[in-house]
Design a protein around this nucleic acid. Structure first.
Length: 457
RNA sequence: GCGUCGGUGGUAGAGUGGUCAAUUACACUUGGCUGUAAACCAAGCGGCUUCGGCCUUCGGGGGUUCGAAUCCCUCCCGGCGCA
């Protein structure tokens, strides 16, 4: 008996130009999740700026923590000792953990720099970019030499050794970071103290068993969406091999098998044939659910999510599907239209912390000068405690002026209130998407919502 | 009153004959943020511009010099010390 089960209550065939949207309930050992659902991102066992005591009030049914981060601190043993990630963070509801595969991608490529894996620097802004350009050159895969440490030859001599690893060790360590992918796993340095570590699919599963979430993900390699076909294919195939090992490792653990579900992650970049191949492969491995892998930031083009979604057609319908890192309002509609059941995304909290507020009339930057004198709530149509108030505030919500002031004066309450509002904005949006699917008016709701949201009306 | 140190762009504070429309930080203005090394990052921040430059700026005024925020004189203002 599998630990989770998805009951699809209602489908909206070919809704929104997609596949079949559906509304249902995902049953987990720690409670039911009405789907589609927005999953709060609690990377280090905390949604930044939001206490677990507020989750329910904000409409959160579940949260997702991260294997990489919790492994580094406080360590999976400590989390296990605390009773698992949910108990550790004083949350009684369902939880998920991500495998750490994304960190291989985001840490390894030179986080925060305009560096891409294969030398496709996004912009070239003279001067400053020189160093980055050099890094790009160093990052070229065909310059990598295997079996590094001892017999590594100078960069110039490496060109004749085309091999699967995508990072230059010298470059990586010079930045205090390292992520070397080989077929068995990934060796990396901690971003915290530079110490070396290694993840394999089995190790990731083992850690996630100790973290004890209801749902966890197989260790994958998240590629740069703009990577070449050749590399996407190679990384995808590696991810598939890792996926197979992950399921096997999980099924061997009888206890974990009864209490935790494992999702496999599909990759393939923006190539339809790879995406299709990945869906069929992952869908056929006996996973309890599916994670839509990739990175869907706008910087990779407007179509990166759409192209990934097409793969869902090749998966078993009844399989629960999760959109990893999908959370822009437009993307929730798009994902839901393709049958995604759960979504996680840092956008409400990251945007909230940095002053961008979701409203029904489009996003606003609350730090803008114009809000200094604005005594209205963040969004007059929002039902969150920040906007509507609570018993504690006498039923009166916070004003834009006040939150603007908190940001300007760098008060810690500022990002907290903004994050809470943004989270509720998305959980309410997804709730209404769910209702619209149940009521058979998904397309209407989508159109009316997005018309105002996108046109800032 | 005498002596002394100092007055630089919104603020603090570099610069001390040309590479200075003036380092830097903060402030300010505006962007950005999609499986979180992000309470972060980026751009702009005297005026005009055909984007090549042009004009006005470093307390006021006057000088020296090919050239001054930088040197000299003088006035004004401030800190400190002595009367």
């Amino acid at each position: 008996m599998r630990p989770i089960r998805l009951d699809i209550e209602k489908e909206a065939p070919r809704s929104g130009g997609g596949l079949d949207a559906r509304a249902g309930v995902l049953h987990t050992p720690h409670g039911d999740i009405k789907t589609p659902a927005f999953v709060g991102v609690a990377t280090k066992a905390t949604i930044k700026g939001v206490s677990s005591a507020q989750f329910a009030e904000l409409g959160l049914q579940t949260v997702i923590a991260n294997t990489y981060h919790l492994y580094l601190s406080p360590g999976e043993e400590m989390v296990q000792k605390a009773g698992g990630v949910a108990t550790f963070m004083n949350w009684s509801g369902p939880t998920m953990t991500d495998s750490g595969g994304f960190q291989v991608f985001s840490l390894g490529t030179g986080f925060g720099k305009k560096v891409s894996k294969f030398g496709q620097s996004s912009k070239s802004e003279e001067g400053k970019e020189e160093e980055t350009q050099q890094e790009n050159d160093l990052l070229r895969r065909d310059e990598w030499e295997p079996n590094s440490s001892e017999e590594r030859s100078p960069a110039a001599e490496r060109k004749n050794h085309p091999l699967p690893t995508q990072y230059d060790e010298d470059l990586a360590t010079s930045h205090g970071k390292l992520a070397i992918v080989d077929d068995d796993g990934v060796t990396f340095t901690s971003h915290l103290d530079g110490t070396m570590h290694r993840f394999t699919p089995e190790r990731s599963v083992e850690i996630q068993h100790k973290l004890g979430a209801d749902i966890f993900f197989a260790f994958d390699e998240c590629t740069e969406p703009t990577a070449t076909y050749e590399y996407q294919k190679e990384a995808m195939e590696r991810t598939h091999r890792w996926a197979k090992r992950s399921v096997a490792a999980h099924r061997q653990n009888f206890d974990a098998n009864n209490t935790q579900a494992i999702y496999g992650i599909g990759q393939g970049g923006q190539f339809d044939d790879l995406r299709q191949e990945s869906a069929r492969a992952i869908g056929d491995m006996g996973f309890d659910g599916f994670g839509l892998g990739g990175s869907f930031s706008k910087k990779y083009g407007d179509n990166s999510l759409q192209s990934a979604l097409n793969m869902l057609e090749f998966l078993p319908k009844e399989m629960p599907k999760h959109g990893l890192g999908v959370g822009e309002p437009e993307d929730l509609f798009l994902g839901a239209a393709y049958g995604i059941d759960t979504f996680d995304c840092v956008i409400p909290t990251r945007n909230g912390r940095t002053g961008t507020i979701f409203t029904h009339q489009g996003n606003i930057n609350i730090e803008n000068a114009q809000y200094k004198h604005d005594l209205s709530s963040l969004d007059p149509e929002c039902d969150c405690v920040v906007c509507m108030g609570s018993v504690a505030t006498g039923g009166v919500g916070f004003t834009k002026s006040y939150i603007h002031h908190l940001f300007r004066t760098k008060e810690m309450l500022a990002p907290m209130l903004a994050s809470q509002h943004n989270i509720r904005f998305l959980t309410r949006l997804i709730d209404r998407i769910r209702e619209s699917i149940l009521d058979g008016r998904f397309d209407d709701f989508r159109d009316s919502f997005l018309r105002r949201y996108k046109n800032k009306q």
